[in-house]
Lab assay of single mutants.
Amino acid sequence: MEVRTIKVFTTVDNINLHTQVVDMSMTYGQQFGPTYLDGADVTKIKPHNSHEGKTFYVLPNDDTLRVEAFEYYHTTDPSFLGRYMSALNHTKKWKYPQVNGLTSIKWADNNCYLATALLTLQQIELKFNPPALQDAYYRARAGEAANFCALILAYCNKTVGELGDVRETMSYLFQHANLDSCKRVLNVVCKTCGQQQTTLKGVEAVMYMGTLSYEQFKKGVQIPCTCGKQATKYLVQQESPFVMMSAPPAQYELKHGTFTCASEYTGNYQCGHYKHITSKETLYCIDGALLTKSSEYKGPITDVFYKENSYTTTIK
């Protein structure tokens, strides 16, 4: 009895394709271990004539594949690729409408935090270190965002349907971005203890939790000093293409032309909904596939993004 075979390709990165001759009487799992086709788990399936010449994702289970996976995804987590594939199996079914010149995501599976993050990423200057993220990001900007969303979920250790947080998501993504040249110098002034300067680099240099107003941050924000008295913390120097200011959701007025974009969060910790506000020729609110415009805006804002380049204080 002759062994019926077909020729397929296996890959971990969709760049390096490895030619395989597979036995049609055995499952993919018996031949390769966990195997995925377009995100779908085909591990328990036997090869079919229609699979001839198709590319299958496999887990990096030998040295060659491990090197290829690390170079593309910059992670050695053995569960990463499987999590990416199972997320992709959902995100490829989502709709990605162009809204006001940006790629958004039609609401499904509690994905409003991903839509808000995706919209924000198209408006701030950011370059990702893992080629996987950078490639998928370019495709997302062009309207094909399924891979990018699935990668975000995998890097953030999230599953489809789980509630997510924009600030946490951005923080994970910033860790995989090139923020080497970003720098922030802060000064804390206390009447009792004097003053202390701190220099922050990388992710810490672009994120701040405690106030939404970048102007206020430049002037000074009140913080408790270690001595128990009130101290003032203010920005001395900022070198970065953008800054992200966050605070627990509270009524906040966004003035046209003073910011790049913002995240609105309605609801409580267990259950809520994100919308995205962007400042173009007027203010726009993007909620999944829905767009509304207004000249002014007041609502429960939790993150505001500002364009920056270089700032030095005039406070002496």
Results as ranks from 00 to 15, higher is better:
Ser86His: 09
Tyr73Phe: 10
Ile105Glu: 02
Ala69Lys: 01
Asp23Leu: 08
Lys316Phe: 15
Gln31Asn: 13
Gly194Pro: 05
Ser240Tyr: 00
Tyr311Asp: 00
Ala247Thr: 03
Lys218Tyr: 03
Leu254Cys: 02
Cys227Lys: 01
Ala142Gly: 13
Tyr72Ser: 13
Lys158Ala: 13
Lys275Val: 10
Thr91Asn: 06
Glu71Met: 09
Arg4Asn: 12
Thr5Gly: 12
Tyr84Ile: 02
Ala140Glu: 12
Lys191Gly: 12
Cys285Arg: 02
Asn100Arg: 13
Asn111Cys: 01
Thr103Val: 12
Gln134Pro: 01
Val236Asp: 07
Gly272His: 03
Pro224Cys: 08
Gly29Ile: 03
Leu254Lys: 02
Val42Tyr: 13
His18Ala: 08
Met209Asn: 12
Leu173Phe: 05
Leu114Ile: 09
Val221Ser: 05
Gly82Leu: 13
Gly29Cys: 03
Thr91Asp: 08
Tyr172Gln: 15
Thr169His: 00
Leu114Glu: 06
Gly194Asp: 07
Tyr137Ser: 07
Gln251Asn: 09
Leu65Cys: 11
Arg141Asp: 05
Met26Pro: 08
Pro34Tyr: 11
Ser104Glu: 12
Ile315Thr: 15
Ser86Phe: 13
Arg4Met: 11
Ala132Arg: 09
Thr278His: 07
Tyr138Trp: 13
Gln197Asn: 08
Met209Thr: 14
Phe174Tyr: 03
Ser263Pro: 05
Phe174Lys: 04
Asp23Lys: 14
Glu168Cys: 08
Val12Asn: 11
Asn100Tyr: 06
Glu253Gly: 00
Gln98Asp: 09
Val8Asn: 10
Tyr113Glu: 02
Glu281Tyr: 05
Val189Asp: 13
Met209Ile: 10
Thr232Asn: 02
Lys229Ala: 14
Thr169Cys: 10
Gln270Ala: 12
Arg66Tyr: 08
Ser50Gln: 14
Lys293Asp: 00
Asn89Glu: 15
Gln195Gly: 06
Ala108Phe: 05
Pro241Glu: 06
Thr211Asn: 10
Trp94Asp: 07
Lys307Gly: 01
Phe9Ser: 13
Ala154Ser: 11
Gln197His: 11
Leu133Met: 02
Val58Thr: 12
Tyr306Asp: 00
Ala108Thr: 09
Lys46Gly: 11
Tyr306Phe: 02
His74Arg: 09
Val21Ile: 14
Ala154Gln: 09
Leu254Arg: 01
Gly161Lys: 00
Val206His: 03
Gly164Glu: 01
Gly101Phe: 13
His51Lys: 04
Tyr265Ser: 06
Tyr252Asp: 08
Val99Asp: 04
Pro241Lys: 08
Pro130Val: 09
Ile45Glu: 14
Tyr28Gln: 04
Leu291Asp: 03
Lys92Asp: 08
Gly228Thr: 01
Leu153Cys: 07
Ala205Trp: 02
Ala140Lys: 09
Pro241Gln: 07
Asn157Gln: 12
Ala69Gln: 12
Asp180Ala: 10
Lys95Gln: 15
Thr91Pro: 06
Glu239Val: 13
Thr159Leu: 14
Tyr306Met: 04
Thr103Gly: 00
Lys293Trp: 07
Thr11Asn: 01
Leu163Gln: 07
Ser181Glu: 13
Leu200Trp: 00
Lys93Cys: 11
Tyr274Met: 00
Val22Cys: 13
Gln270Val: 11
Gln197Lys: 11
Cys149Glu: 08
Thr55Ser: 11
Ala247Phe: 04
Ala108Trp: 07
Asn187Leu: 11
Ala145Val: 03
Tyr36His: 01
Ile277Ala: 11
Asp41Ser: 11
Val67Glu: 13
Ala145His: 00
Tyr208Gln: 05
Tyr113His: 06
Asn49Arg: 13
Ile124Phe: 04
Thr312Gly: 07
Ser246Lys: 06
Ser295Cys: 12
Gly101Trp: 05
Asn268Arg: 04
Phe148Arg: 03
Thr116Gly: 07
Cys225Pro: 02
Leu163Lys: 10
Cys285Thr: 10
Phe70Ala: 12
Tyr252Cys: 06
Phe56Leu: 13
Cys112Arg: 05
Gln30Cys: 07
Asn187Gly: 08
Met245Val: 09
Glu2Tyr: 11
Leu186Gly: 04
Phe80Asn: 04
Ala247Asn: 01
Leu102Arg: 12
Asp165Glu: 05
Met24Pro: 12
Thr314His: 14
Asp38Pro: 05
Asn178Ile: 01
Glu215Arg: 05
Ala231Tyr: 05
Arg139Phe: 03
Ser86Thr: 11
Met170Gln: 04
Gln122Pro: 04
Lys46Cys: 10
Lys218Val: 03
Ala231Asp: 02
Leu235Ser: 02
Ser86Val: 13
Leu88Met: 02
Arg83Gln: 03
Ile124Gln: 07
His18Val: 10
Ser79Trp: 07
Gln230Asp: 08
Gln237Ala: 12
Gln20Leu: 08
Ser295Lys: 14
Lys95Cys: 10
Gly202Thr: 01
Thr226Arg: 14
Ala142Tyr: 13
Gly210Ser: 11
Ile124Ser: 02
Glu2Phe: 08
